[in-house]
Every structure is written in structure tokens, then in C-alpha cells.
Design a protein around this nucleic acid. Sequence first.
DNA 1: AATTAATTCAACCGCAGGCTG
DNA 2: CCAGCCTGCGGTTGAATTAAT
Length: 277
Amino acid sequence: MGRSPCCEQAHTNKGAWTKEEDQRLIAYIKAHGEGCWRSLPKAAGLLRCGKSCRLRWINYLRPDLKRGNFTEEEDELIIKFHELFGNKWSLIAGRLPGRTDNEIKNYWNTHIKRKLLARGIDPQTHRPLNAAPATAPAQQQQQYQLQAQRHLAAAPGHHHQQQDHFAGVLSNSPEACSHSSDDEHRSSTPPPPRHLDIDLNLSISLAPYQPPSEEPNKPPKQEAAATAAGNNVTVCLCLNSLGYRPGVECVCGGGGASSRQEQWARSFLQAAPCYRG
DNA sequence: AATTAATTCAACCGCAGGCTG
DNA sequence: CCAGCCTGCGGTTGAATTAAT
């Protein structure tokens, strides 16, 4: 596998972004949407590598970022998800609206680790610090993590439809884990004893690019889904955030979708048949 | 007020893995 | 099948900021 030459190019800026660079990036993405990171810097007139642009956008400029202190609720969610997924920050970020993997990773390392240690809990194993070194249970937990990850892998893309996000995640419903994996059927492994309060019955939807809503508490996802299911929608196969962009034609060239992107979109839609018109 | 230590977090780096020709 | 391209991820770094002395 070849290394991407994108960051080896000469004449690319590094380090902190300037306001002007931010403006350029925002303006470009507003006009053309996300994606095509490699060609973006040149097209946007930025002396940055695509990777850097992507990072800047995702971690800092994206309009749907929360950018505030983490709430106690979020803390607990992160802890639970970390227990479940391990250091899969992107998976964790996918279930915390408005938070980025980088942000969560930093927050984990600077705050939550310490918090857990203060509670006498090992932040890596989520077990009491003075507990005997786990062998079989740790393997079992790893297996549960793998199961959960397999579930998620089966449904690519971000898992939105988070209108009842916190309520759902925090629910103690006995059905919360009722979607148990194949593994559960073919092994005598007892069900995970410690994650019953995590609702993994995650559903997916085409994740629209959402400009900041006027009403922060009103999740716009349903609207988008309804619009999509209804009419007059252009599905942008260039997959700029898998955006449904009502009435907007794809602008990334290649007739609306590169073959690769189109293929991805098709496989996605097949994997999520309930979202096919 | 000056200096040092600790903390935070944006950004970078290298790699994995999927896709293409 | 293979080499190269591209994106995304997780770990790490280091500049900026804050707290302590």
C-alpha cells in the first residue's frame, strides 16, 4: 500500500490555521460540499494538504459541532461506550451528536481517565483498580466489543436518527440488547452482564448535512428523512456526508458521482433497504 | 511581576484498509 | 493479482493557556 503523497508536497502550510484559511475552507465547502479532499485545497486556493483540510473541517469548522463543555450525561455515555468499544473514538463520536472523535479522545485523556482513576476504576479495563487481573472475563468483554463492532460495521456510515438519542442510549429497557448478534446464538456465552443499559439497537439513516437548526432541541433528521422519502429530493451520490440536498444537483463533477462513490452509495442503500424510496 | 509546572487541545503523523486501473 | 491512490482512524506532539510558586 502506497503512502499518500498528499502531505509531502512542498509549499503546503502547516500548523495553526489562520482566519483567512478557515474562511476559504468554509466558503468552499458551503459552495461545493464535503468530499474530494485531495483536490479541495487546490480548488479552494488553500496551501494545505487535503488531510489537513478534512481535519480542520471535521474537528473545528463543521457547523453542527457543539463546542462546549461536556455534560455529566455525556461523560457517562463516553465511559459506557469506551467500556464497550475501547479506543474506537470515531464509533463513540458517532453516537454523541456534535462531538468529534478528536475532541472525545482528548477529553478522555485529560478528564475522564482521571475521573475513573479517582473512582478507583482502571480506565482501560473499566474494572476496579485493585481487582485481580482478569483473564477470561477480559476476553469475554473483548468478544462483546467485537460483536458490537461487527454490528456497527454491518451498517456503514454514521448512525444518526438520534432524536431520542440520550433517552434511548440511557434506557434500561430489557429490549435494549435484544438485537443480539449471531455469535450469541451459536455460542453458550452468557449475555454481556454489564452493558444492559446501553441501547445498541441502533438505526441508521442517510445522514444529511444539517445546517445549524434554529431550534436546537428539534432534531431535523426526521424532516430530512421524510423529505427524502417524499419527493423532490436529489440524493447526492458524491456522498458529501451522504447529504440529501433538496433540489441541489451534485457539484463535485463526474456526473454527480464517481464510480467509486456511486458503488458505495449503492452498497449502502442495499445494506439499509428500509431507506430506499 | 516573573518564572516554572501542569494542563489543554488543535494539528500532525503514520498506518490500515478499501477501491481502482 | 498487484501497485498505487485515497480516506479515515488512533496515537502522539507541541504550542498556547492556566495555575502554582
